[in-house]
Amino acid sequence: MSTKNIEELEREFQAKIDADIKIEPNDWMPEGYRKTLMRQISQHAHSEIVGMLPEGNWITRAPSLKRKAVLLAKVQDEAGHGLYLYSAAETLGLDREKSIDDLHSGKAKYSSIFNYPTLTWADMGTIGWLVDGAAIMNQVPLCRCSYGPYARAMVRVCKEESFHQRQGFEIVSLLANGTPEQKQMAQDSLNRFWWPALMMFGPNDDNSPNSAQSIKWKIKRSSNDELRQQFIDVTVAQAEMVGLTIPDKDLKWNEARGSYDFGTINWEEFNQVIQGNGPCNKERIDARRNAKENGAWVREAANAFAEKRKKKELTH
């Protein structure tokens, strides 16, 4: 048992962080660091799992066998991402079952974007292009997060996300270059997802009270507004390339800043969705709850089968 007092331990901890030494599961860490990470990683895991639902909606209706195979692979990746992340959170002492129950009771949060419906096939393209694109912007800096297991999980996730974004952009760009109806479908999808995608980066820096501490701990490496700006700056050119219009009349290149100026985000809508009042919040949580309840017999059967196999091995 260490005889150091808490101030000493905290000083040593911050010195490690400042020297870019990763923190590993059994290392001493301040309770706040552990709690912040557990909340962030489990929310991230929940987002991956809930994120399977809007796309799962189109697996049976994908327009070709190729698109169906691609979409299946993508949704399977999301399940894997959720699993890497739950595992990373478990290294901090997270109780996985409890954390999943918190999601189902509405106590735990997940990314607001997945509470929007996927109305047309074009949404599969837009989600890959914008939602996975925004996720990559968020996640690439997390590969350098100070907590080892989270950073390692993010490296794997980022490698896989890049396929997700490209397949999405391919869908959008094919539609945008197709018939007028197809182009309209792509534009309509962009109109619906653009603003929710910008909200994915979270509140403005002035309204993000925990950000400063997270940056000091190197849990976060860039601010919400920096990442959002970066996303807009790279995405505008991609939309222009395929001939689609970003639904923001205030969007304008600012020569002095070397960035785009953009319109005001509807934070009231963001808060409503976060609080559970988005178009699909109830549907998403119901689907997750049903999956857990209706799958209970499978988990029990697997336990019974494992017991049986163990007994058989012992008698040999």
């Binding site: 890497y84 595992s87 478990e90 390692r152 999980a153």
Partner: peptide, 11 residues
């Protein structure tokens, strides 16, 4: 590479 949950070794 990481961890996961499973009922037994084969799973």
């Amino acid at each position: 590479v990481g961890s996961l949950r499973a009922a037994d070794a084969q799973m």
